[in-house]
Write a protein that binds this DNA or RNA. Structure first.
Lengths: 202, 202
DNA sequence: GGTAAAGTGGACCCGCTAGTCCTAAAAAGG
DNA sequence: CCTTTTTAGGACTAGCGGGTCCACTTTACC
């Protein structure tokens, strides 16, 4: 039945995923029912099960994948091009702006804390997301090290881990406190400390 | 009805809270039912509603408060006495050991990501926890600054924010990846950078 | 333009869970 | 002791939500 979706069918399927994602982002996974998704996307119960035969679990996995993709693309092109200090600051600003704008409706947190807890499949999606995120940061760090902009002995793996942790925690704190200061502090202090370790001549 | 609990009644109430907390920690809030709590704690439905007349919501709030208390007491006496580098390392080790040992059954994450999302009351509990946690870290930082062990111009507020974010993110990453490296990296790099700014490194 | 497959609508079912209610046992308290 | 309050037990209910089913319509393709 799959693989042979008509254009219309594919569009309906995508509409369901995006509607479900939005519903979950806005109201939380716990209170989002298939009926809510159905109503929001203008579909019927049978369509939900037509496109997602395994039911809710399969839909949630598709939503997880959809949200995971968004998290990284939202940071592009900055995340993929951390090759100069201005580029690092541009990325930093993009991240802060993004999470400030999203407020409580945070795809990342929904993914990590709600979807990622439910099924092994969604957990794998989260792991893959984190791995790629960290790897992109790591690539930027290595570039800066090779360019002589930071301490030549910098342990980029460990620094990337710490920075990613700071971002995750910063976002979490924003959801708990409503303020963006933790995210900013984590990003800014890490970057400042990196610059302190680089060649002092400018 | 409240305020006049006999010793036996108070013990039963406490047993319900702790049983519910353990059940939620182990299996998640989404799948924990009142019947699970009832079975685990050897109580009956009417007792649950006797001790928590508002029902599940009231019980969850009590659980949230219980878990929040644990998070901080688990870090004592180290967190309250960050007055020397050995003390900082002892705290660091205690935090890492704690979260490594807990594995997937993490009261902090249950509180922040699951309970904290459900009701305004639980949100307030989370906010209070974070505020106190950060304030204790801040106190330690100020002490080290006044003792001349770190950069005298250190912005302790911002550093405390970043460190707390790193811890939160490190714990979150541990739950996502199963590895403790992010938490360790966040703690260790922060402490290393603090020491670099102190008088001994000059 | 006919037919087979894909897409759509919505009524229905069944299990589960929060919450109610009534009764009984055990403490307190005089 | 005997009464009142607190503690305990468990059957019952109402509603909701995931999932099934079947009838009908549209689309693709020869």
């Amino acid at each position: 039945m799959t693989g042979t979706l008509t254009r219309k069918g594919a569009a309906t399927r995508q509409r369901i995923i995006e509607g479900a994602a939005a519903e979950i982002r806005e109201r939380g996974i716990a209170v989002t029912t298939l009926d809510d998704v159905r109503a929001r996307t203008g579909t019927s119960k049978s369509q939900l099960f037509h496109y997602f035969p395994e039911g809710k679990e399969e839909l949630l996995l598709a939503v997880a994948q959809f949200e995971a993709d968004r998290v990284l693309t939202d940071q592009q092109p900055f995340l993929g091009d951390l090759t100069s200090w201005p580029a690092w600051y541009a990325w930093r600003d993009a991240v802060v702006a993004r999470y400030l704008e999203q407020g409580q409706h945070c795809p990342l947190n929904v993914l990590v804390s709600q979807l990622g807890r439910s099924t092994p499949g969604a957990q794998a999606v989260v792991r893959a997301l984190m791995q790629q995120w960290e790897s992109e940061i790591n690539r930027g760090l290595r570039h800066m090290r090779d360019a002589g902009e930071v301490d030549p002995d910098l342990d980029t793996d460990r620094t990337a881990s710490a920075l990613l942790a700071g971002i995750q925690g910063g976002v979490l704190m924003m959801l708990s406190t409503g303020r963006i200061t933790h995210l900013e502090a984590a990003l800014d202090l890490t970057i400042e400390n990196l610059r302190k370790g680089g060649r002092t001549s400018r």
